[in-house]
């Protein structure tokens, strides 16, 4: 199954294997502590789409608490580099994901500030970055447009 979210003139696709990882968190994770990682994928301008193909998951170094997830660089950067090389230099950083103990996840003020800060950095390959929160029943996808956080709508095939 391909899971899609449509916004403006492009389409974000989340590959099945990534969606399954998120589903696994929804189904089995006890959410005693929050988890997270980075979103990795490819740009497909000829189809006006961006495809999330991989994610990273918590490394020991990351700080996982009941109400927070602090992701470090180490571990995630190495995994990113590895995916980049293995994909003939096509895979790129596309944003962040983390879990929330909420049925319908909603970003906290810290999340919003963090997302805006990350989006403002002019170092990214993709002009569009995405931020996913995995709740206990649903996942939500956001992006930052002109310093405003905007939720993407789900389009199911």
């Amino acid at each position: 199954m391909e899971y899609e979210v449509r916004a403006e003139s492009f389409r974000l696709e989340i590959n099945e294997n990534v969606y399954q990882r998120f589903s696994a968190y929804i189904e089995s994770y006890n959410y005693n502590v929050e988890s997270g990682g980075i979103l990795v994928g490819i740009l497909d301008p000829s189809h006006n789409s961006i495809i999330i193909t991989d994610i990273t998951e918590p490394f020991d170094r990351d700080r996982q608490t009941r109400y927070g997830f602090h992701r470090m660089e180490k571990g995630h950067q190495e995994k990113m580099d590895q995916l980049w090389e293995q994909s003939d230099f096509k895979k790129t950083y596309l944003g962040e994901w983390h879990t929330h103990k909420q049925k319908r996840p909603c970003p906290s003020n810290i999340d919003i500030k963090n997302w805006i800060k990350i989006s403002k950095k002019n170092i990214h390959n993709s002009q569009r970055l995405f931020f996913i929160i995995v709740g206990t029943e649903e996942i939500g996808v956001w992006m930052v447009v002109h310093d405003m956080v905007k939720k993407l709508e789900v389009v199911e095939n």
């Binding site: 990795v40 927070g68 997830f69 602090h70 660089e73 950067q77 580099d81 895979k91 963090n114 170092i123």
Partner: peptide
Amino acid sequence: CTILVELFGEDFPVTVDKSMVGTSESA
């Protein structure tokens, strides 16, 4: 590469520079 895809179509590969993932704080 995105411009070159416009000119030549999807057979032109879209490669990217090395990503810098930085750190991230969520709550």
